[in-house]
Design a binder for these strands. Structure first.
Lengths: 240, 240
DNA sequence: GAACAAGCTGCGGGTTTACGCAAGACGGCG
DNA sequence: CGCCGTCTTGCGTAAACCCGCAGCTTGTTC
């Protein structure tokens, strides 16, 4: 069995290396990559490898890397190992998981025990292992209760990119008014009004900009999500 | 000599611990804190301690912690040890450094050697040590060449918070028109127009929202900066 | 098939933004 | 002092945004 470790931080990388050795005696080769680009390359060379992947790397982040890897070989098993459980990450990951693929999402704050268990479950037993905390988010966010619909999330990203209503309408093939409807929905769910009106009519907010702020503060958006959305936008712009 | 380590990540914490022991044989006590809040408390108890501080911690980030520590004891020597050199961090730090205080800013990607050197320089020799890369940013951003004026940065933060022009005017004691002038200046410097007009008049951007996006992508803003700005805003709102 | 919920769309109008134009205000500098 | 650049402010306008109202298309349920 081969395991590929894709991780920025040298300390974390060697920690992972040890953990893999301890948890998987049947593993004979461990390969390390220090960023997403190298990770993709090594994954291509060592086809049979299972992967432990950090999200949030400077050069090319884990979600991007995982996407291209899964595109080439959807049955690859990937364990995401991340510092954060931002909804933006969770959403980003579950958007790219191929049907039926075995994967995992474990926080760096988890105990050694948990990490080793996850390694065995995924790489040996082909089971999905999602940290409790992450799992909670996933259900709340993807289930519509209290969470955001895909269409709401979509328009959130669009205004976060700085598109005008008209541009969004074109991009999503909607009428202007529909776009604005969705925006209202979004403002509603984000509680943009609460702070805006409140009691004092002083502290007035620009709804659109405020929605973005709140989304960031609630970790619905983060740098990595923005970055991905931006490159998608550029592709769309180029493709006409 | 006492050294206080304030750092989220257990791996990094123990690495730092070792580095301090190796670099500073005259140091007899090393104390560890796993977040900003505890860090502040321990700094208060061990008044004479020098501090190594991570930025970006979940509970209370390094800049906040450093600010209260420096407020109580401005001569404290603090070495910031961070993964990133975002302009938002650099700005955040240099805004709170007391006059004449010795401090340092070293990236986690620096070599052992660099870290140890920095430890000695700051804690023994009271010299400021700023990583080359960070230094570059600092000069470019604080010097007006190509960088952003304080007033420009201020208004950037204000729109990122989601305030309306009118609200900004009140907050900064300006006329509406002046606020809008500064916005235009900002849009100019951020190159918001470029993409907006370009050749195709299709891809139109909402200037205000787009400015925020670009600022994030360029790391002029990040989560921590937003968070700080938001609490400041709330204080201002409460204070009327 | 009737009833109902959910989403898309057009119309109309009140508010906010973006910005050109131009008249002061302030501070250096020869 | 007079000249000049930078900053502030007011006025006015075109565009964009926010949103209530109302008519349509769906899909679901009984």
């Amino acid at each position: 069995m081969k395991v590929l470790i894709v991780e920025d931080d040298p300390l974390h990388r060697s920690y992972l290396h040890e953990a893999v050795n301890a948890a998987l005696p049947e593993c004979d080769t461990v390969i390390e990559a220090e960023n997403g680009t190298v990770g993709e390359k090594l994954a291509r060379e060592h086809k049979s490898a299972h992967i432990v992947m950090d999200l949030q790397m400077a050069n090319r982040n884990g979600i991007e890397a995982a996407r291209t890897i899964w595109k080439e070989r959807p049955e690859t098993r990937i364990l995401f190992w991340s510092n954060y459980s931002d909804e933006a990450y969770v959403r980003g990951v579950s958007r790219i998981v191929p049907d039926g693929a075995a994967y995992g999402y474990v926080l760096k704050s988890a105990s050694d025990e948990r990490l080793k268990l996850a390694l065995r479950s995924i790489f040996v037993e082909s089971q999905c292992v999602i940290d409790r905390e992450v799992r909670g988010l996933q259900q709340k966010s993807l289930g519509q209760t209290n969470g955001f619909t895909d269409s709401e999330y979509e328009i959130l990203v669009d205004i976060a990119l700085g598109l005008t209503d008209r541009a969004i309408a074109r991009r999503r093939s909607l009428s202007l008014r529909s776009v604005q409807n969705r925006l209202q929905q979004l403002y509603d769910k984000l509680d943009v009004y609460q702070a805006a009106s409140d009691d004092n009519d002083d502290g007035r907010f620009n709804l659109r900009a405020r929605a973005i702020t709140i989304a960031f503060l609630r970790k619905l958006l983060n740098y990595s999500a923005l970055e991905r959305a931006e490159t998608e936008l550029q592709e769309w712009l180029d493709g006409k």
